[in-house]
Simulated assay, not measured.
Amino acid sequence: MQLTVRYFAGARAAAGRTEETASAGRSLDALVDELAARHGDRLATVLKAASFLIDGVACHDRQAPLPAGVTVDVLPPFAGG
Rank of each mutant, 00 (worst) to 15 (best):
P77Y: 04
G80L: 10
V46D: 01
G25I: 07
Q63L: 14
L47M: 08
T21W: 03
L47K: 07
V46R: 03
A9I: 05
T18E: 14
A79E: 11
F52P: 13
F52I: 11
A15E: 06
F8W: 14
E19W: 05
V46S: 02
H60I: 10
F8K: 05
R42Q: 10
A68W: 10
L28C: 05
G81N: 10
A14Y: 04
A11N: 02
D41N: 07
D73I: 11
R12E: 06
V46L: 01
A37D: 10
D73W: 12
Y7P: 05
G40M: 01
P67N: 12
R12L: 04
V5F: 07
D61E: 14
H39D: 01
A68Q: 13
T18H: 09
T45M: 03
I54Q: 15
R12G: 04
P77N: 07
M1F: 08
R17H: 02
F8E: 03
F52C: 11
L28A: 05
G80M: 09
V74S: 05
G81I: 13
L3Y: 08
F78T: 06
G80F: 09
G25P: 04
A11K: 03
A24G: 12
A44P: 04
E19A: 12
S23F: 00
T21S: 11
D33M: 00
V5I: 15
A9E: 06
M1N: 11
G25C: 06
V32I: 13
G69S: 12
S27H: 07
V74G: 04
E20P: 02
P77K: 03
L43M: 03
R62W: 05
G10K: 09
V32P: 00
D61N: 15
A50R: 09
A50K: 09
V46Y: 01
V70D: 05
G40L: 01
A14L: 02
P67Y: 07
A14C: 02
T71L: 13
A44T: 04
S27E: 08
